[in-house]
């Protein structure tokens, strides 16, 4: 299925959880924040929340800034 990941179309396994997505992207769950369709998903929910086709997923982290 397809989701929107950080503004771009991204192919994932059907019903993938946020934890699985982060694993697949090789992202450390302790260093990111995840938003799905404008709602922030708490870290404790990463395993429980499975994504649906067309979900808008944003994965954010700390970057350089003043």
């Amino acid at each position: 299925m397809q989701i929107q990941l950080n503004g771009k179309v991204h192919d994932v396994t059907d019903g993938v959880s946020i934890k699985q997505l982060l694993d697949e992207l090789k992202l450390h769950p302790l260093r990111v924040a995840v938003q799905v369709n404008l709602d922030i998903v708490k870290r404790e929910q990463y395993e429980a929340v499975s994504l649906q086709p067309g979900d808008k997923v944003e994965v954010l982290t700390f970057m350089a800034g003043g």
Binding site: L5, F62, G65
Partner: peptide, 8 residues
Amino acid sequence: VAVRRVNL
């Protein structure tokens, strides 16, 4: 630091 999209 700023909060921005992670670099994929």
